[in-house]
Simulated assay, not measured.
Amino acid sequence: MSLTGVVAEPLVDDDLGQGAQRRRTALWIGGLAAGLLVTVVLAVGIGAVGISPGTVARIVGHHTLGSPAGVTWTRAEDSIVWQVRLPRVVLGVVVGAALAVCGVALQAMVRNLLADPYLLGVTSGASTGAAAAILFGLGAGFGENALSASAFLGALAASAAVFVVARAGGRITSLRLLMAGVAVGYALYAATSFLIFAADSAEGARSVLFWLLGSLGLARWGVPLAIVVVVVALTLAALLLWSRRLDALAIGDETAHTLGVPPTRFRVQLLVVVSLCVGAVVAASGGIGFVGLVIPHVARRFVGAAHGRVVPVAALIGAIFLVWADVAARTLLEPRELPIGIITALVGAPFLLILVRRFHSAGA
């Protein structure tokens, strides 16, 4: 098996019947969904001021369902849970799920096991836009949403550049997407570094560096969070709808053609959907690495390589993983907060080494 083969396991599990595989997948999805619910309740209660899971559940139920009617918690606890921690945890759920499923889609799109949302230069584009907003006030017309708007516009510009470069000479292929993404990503990384170097504000430079490594600290109830939730939900729906096409594309262009899936057109559709999704989540949370690389492999280990099973399982695992990574980021060095990208890298880098060792053992 080579690094350019996305399917680590066969798409059809010969040792399990379809019914058994469906039951197995349903068990994983049900268990992970329950685990995500428990994760949300526990994560909201963890912090400098500890709040019991029961109190968290009552506060959330009071705000969402109007029950219980009687208030048995303090105003401070209500503010901490509803205004500070819950939006952050919700953003962690959404961003983790988005990065994981975008990693699944990209690995199928370019048929490379090491592909992730950084591959297409989208994260670098968002970082350049955010750096320009923080250091030079770009996007001031968007008011308090200037950072998110500038990052999103940067991500879209990067996606457009990758599309133009990859399409030069005709059809879009896996190799062209890889090369275009790497080239655009490095160019934008250099642009971001130049902006930091050219800035007069040391505080602004530190803010950019912290944002580049990712943070959920900007999460608040409002339109920006709602937009991210809607974009990620639509992306999940699209990838589930296209799961069989992803299976065909992951095997190879010839197979995709045989099964009636035009590879170039489908890659363009995937590129647009993934770029919009990654741009939205990076604009809200900064650059968070390794989630889109690691989580798809874990999901395939649990339910096989068929994308109809991998996409929902990867979404749930990514959501759980990123919420706990954020808990670690905000509690390990209290009252200081670590960039969440440090935590994901500490977990993801050893996994990547294990993956490389596995390829070596397999003769890749």
Rank of each mutant, 00 (worst) to 15 (best):
R309E: 09
D253H: 11
A149V: 02
L147R: 01
L246S: 01
G286R: 09
V90W: 00
L178C: 00
R23E: 12
L346E: 04
G35K: 09
G308N: 12
V7Y: 11
L271W: 05
G50N: 11
R245C: 12
A248E: 03
G141A: 11
A283Q: 01
V6Q: 12
A183P: 01
T55W: 09
G292L: 02
A219Q: 12
A284P: 00
T331E: 08
I196F: 03
V60A: 14
A158P: 02
L177M: 11
R167S: 08
A205V: 10
A126W: 13
E144F: 07
L175C: 07
L241K: 11
F359Q: 14
G304I: 09
A8H: 09
A151M: 02
P335N: 08
H307P: 11
T72A: 12
R22A: 08
V182S: 03
R245K: 06
T74K: 10
G154R: 09
I251V: 08
A130I: 10
S127N: 15
S124H: 14
L322W: 01
A97Q: 06
T344D: 07
I342S: 05
D78Q: 15
V56C: 05
A69E: 10
R75G: 02
A364Q: 05
V94Q: 08
G70A: 14
L240T: 12
G92P: 03
S243G: 06
G341H: 05
A328E: 11
V311L: 09
S127V: 08
A48F: 04
A34N: 01
D14W: 10
A166G: 13
V298F: 05
L239P: 00
R58N: 14
W242M: 11
L175M: 11
A161D: 02
G289R: 03
L156W: 00
P339S: 05
G96W: 00
G181P: 15
F359P: 03
L213T: 14
V294E: 04
F290M: 13
L175S: 13
L249D: 03
R336A: 14
V291T: 02
A202M: 14
L212N: 07
L195V: 01
W242K: 12
T72W: 07
L36M: 13
G35P: 11
V294T: 12
F351K: 03
T25A: 13
I343D: 09
A98C: 13
V184T: 04
V303G: 07
A158G: 02
A345H: 13
H257G: 06
I46P: 11
T255C: 07
D326P: 09
R176T: 04
A305F: 10
F197M: 10
Q107V: 05
F302R: 05
T128Y: 04
L240K: 03
R24W: 11
L86M: 10
G289L: 12
F359N: 00
V272L: 14
A33V: 05
